[in-house]
Design a protein around this nucleic acid. Structure first.
Lengths: 188, 188
DNA sequence: CCTACCGATCGGTAGG
DNA sequence: CCTACCGATCGGTAGG
């Protein structure tokens, strides 16, 4: 692993544990065995570390999402695959998801706007999946918007309590959350 | 409204918008029309503002929860009332819930341990409600723990996207989320 | 990759 | 409730 990527990993863990404002460049340097000022040979700034982390996270999530829903036309199966990708991503990238949700305020413009735009696009896509299922008579929900928020919240919440060392394997959690999502929309 | 409570309101809004570390005592003072140092006539420290905010939030949530489940023995109705209280609290106290979830790391010991203990107690109580329903044959869930986490996550997520000015009233959101929770546990 | 350092900012205190 | 100020800390630069 190169120094630059070791720095990114250290920054992610520290941002998650202490927050962006609570993390110093000296902290990040110490985590990879160098002094704070030496970091500037590898990264442009502390803010740049946050920008890269948050945009890469949203890009990765969107890419997985598009691949997941591209394979089939059946509304139930499309939602199932989208939830699978959503939950799996949040289980595998807990820290990224947590930082992404809690450090939006530390992200400067114009990057903040970019990330918010991608997040809105992701939400719209999920809403469309629920709409398709309703239109096809396969889902029954009181509100499409609330149902899609609820499904997204299942995955985001997971990022706060899931632990790799826990008693539940990733596949078990993914399966159960997918089941919850399908129950939630009244899938038939 | 007294100065002390105006200060608490301002601190809550600023902690939610900029984070605890990103908020200065001068910011809080400016929000109530005084200078930073003058705050110390009303509060002990910046940390004390966070401690009061987070403990009061968890105490309020626990109190509402206990009152909600005390009125009936029917498992379905008990869960319905608990979810109602949970969702309503998170709709009415969005900022408190958001700060409570994102600023745990800024809370110093021993208060951090106290708040974590209360949160664990709250989670256990919800888990027990789901267990009761399963034991009575009224719920069908693959995992009691995951189902209760999922229900709790519905309310916590709401704190990030709910807006009082939005198109959905508090009662509508509460009703729909309660419906989602009951679907989630396969209530009969 | 380091030390030395700059300019700015912070929480909190002194003293009125 | 204020100004003046302390001691500490921060992100980033200079210069090697």
């Amino acid at each position: 692993m190169g120094t630059a990527s070791a720095i990114r990993v250290a920054a992610l863990e520290l941002f998650a544990a202490r927050g962006y404002e609570g993390t110093t460049m000296a902290d990040i340097g110490a985590a990879v065995g160098i002094r704070g000022p030496s970091l500037y040979k590898h990264v442009a700034s502390k803010q740049d570390l946050l920008v890269e982390l948050m945009t890469a996270t949203m890009d990765g999530l969107l890419e997985l999402h598009r691949a997941a829903v591209a394979g089939t036309d059946d509304p139930v199966e499309r939602l199932r695959r989208a939830v699978d990708a959503h939950v799996r991503f949040h289980a595998r990238h807990r820290l990224e998801a947590f930082v992404g949700a809690s450090e939006m305020r530390s992200l400067a413009e114009p990057h903040r706007g970019t990330v918010l735009g991608k997040r809105a696009e992701y939400e719209r896509s999920f809403r469309r999946l629920v709409e398709e299922g309703v239109a096809a008579g396969r889902f029954r929900v009181p509100s499409v918007r609330l149902a899609s928020y609820a499904i997204l919240d299942l995955g985001m919440g997971l990022a706060t309590w899931y632990r790799e060392e826990g008693e539940l394997s990733e596949n078990e959690v993914v399966w159960q959350q997918t089941e919850f999502a399908l129950r939630l929309v009244g899938a038939e």
